[in-house]
Simulated assay, not measured.
Amino acid sequence: MANETAFTSDDALASAHRTLQTELAELQHLDARLDERFSQAVAMLLACTGRVAVTGIGKSGHIARKISATFASTGSPSYFVHAAEAAHGDLGMITGDDIIIAISYSGSSPEMATILPIARRLGSKIIGICGNRYSELASLSDIFLDVGVTREACPLNLAPTSSTTVTLALGDALAIACLEARGFGKSDFARSHPGGALGRRLLTHVRDVMRQGDELPIVGPDTPMQKVLEEMTGKRMGMTVIADQTRKPLGIFTDGDLRRLIMQRGDIRPITAGQVMTPHPRTISPEALAAEAAAVMEQQKLSTMLVVNQEQTLVGALHMHDLMDAKVI
């Protein structure tokens, strides 16, 4: 084994560049040889009435699992089947309505040779992905996609590196083509990722995070300042809404307004809410996305925003902290 101390920082960088350049060249070769078979594979996937079963073993199995996950998160229901486990019972997961994407770089995996003929008898269509067009896997496939590489990035040309990168990229290309054909959008993606940041931004509406009912600080325009302060203190939103008897907002009075009022007037006891409110407060619909409210509040430097329905009746209020607690921002 080579002396590791002789491997310098420059050597490490040179190795990384060789690896990346080798894999990039193989990706470019794949891009250049894509043909009608790729389009046929996409058409087959789009016509699938079942699910996309992706199978492989060894390094190809790891790639197959990732490709299946990409399909599942981009609008094509999919699951991974380990080729060896399929030969020992898991083949029962596959139905005749499913399409199988079978991955084996050599194309001579004995596990594939065992399970694919049975799957064909079930009625499953097979998309074979391998590096040998004359292999058994290619002959068992309805559509064969070639991921052959001229060289692995491994300097020994042994460890699957370029070949796994090319296979993964081809799987991504299939999944994204299906995504685009289906018109799969951000909201669809969010529904399959509800726990992620994008899911929260695209699935959380104002109505989900707004304060409402008894939590809302509301006073009438004739309310004396002492009562206004009691309402603001009790509801802890840093403001109160001034509304008429039909709950239509007339204005808003904030902690900042209170400080400025005290500095200007001193004795504020004779003043009523309607005299010092800020009229025409910014409002938003409860059906709007919370992310939309956050963008407006950040742009206009608002700490709170009122929520009104189609009749312009007050139904809630948002505080910036509410959006932060919901992890929308």
Rank of each mutant, 00 (worst) to 15 (best):
I126G: 00
P217I: 13
T161S: 13
S141M: 03
A190K: 13
D10E: 14
S187A: 11
C178P: 00
I143R: 01
A159Q: 10
D142P: 13
K235P: 00
S76V: 11
D267H: 06
L174A: 11
G266C: 08
I127P: 00
G148R: 10
Q226T: 08
V241T: 04
S135T: 02
D208L: 08
F189H: 15
L122P: 04
L323P: 00
A288C: 07
K235G: 01
A12P: 00
I101K: 04
L261Y: 08
E4N: 11
L13C: 10
A102Q: 10
P155L: 07
A16Q: 14
P110D: 09
D322E: 15
E311G: 03
D188Y: 07
F71G: 07
T254Y: 03
I115W: 02
I118M: 14
K186T: 15
D188K: 12
A72C: 09
L137Q: 05
G234Q: 06
S108N: 14
M277I: 02
P270E: 02
M239H: 02
H62M: 08
T304C: 11
F7S: 02
L314W: 05
M112C: 07
A317Y: 04
R207C: 13
L314S: 05
T161A: 05
K248E: 12
V209D: 01
E230P: 11
L198N: 02
A177H: 04
L46R: 15
F253R: 03
G131H: 02
P160H: 10
T114S: 05
G89H: 08
A43P: 09
G89P: 08
D214K: 15
T74M: 07
V328F: 10
G251R: 01
G234M: 15
H321N: 08
L27A: 13
R236F: 14
A138K: 10
E36L: 15
V147L: 01
V206P: 01
A119L: 09
M232T: 03
L202Q: 04
H29A: 15
F7I: 07
P194G: 02
A113R: 06
L140Y: 09
E111N: 04
P279D: 03
L140M: 13
G128E: 01
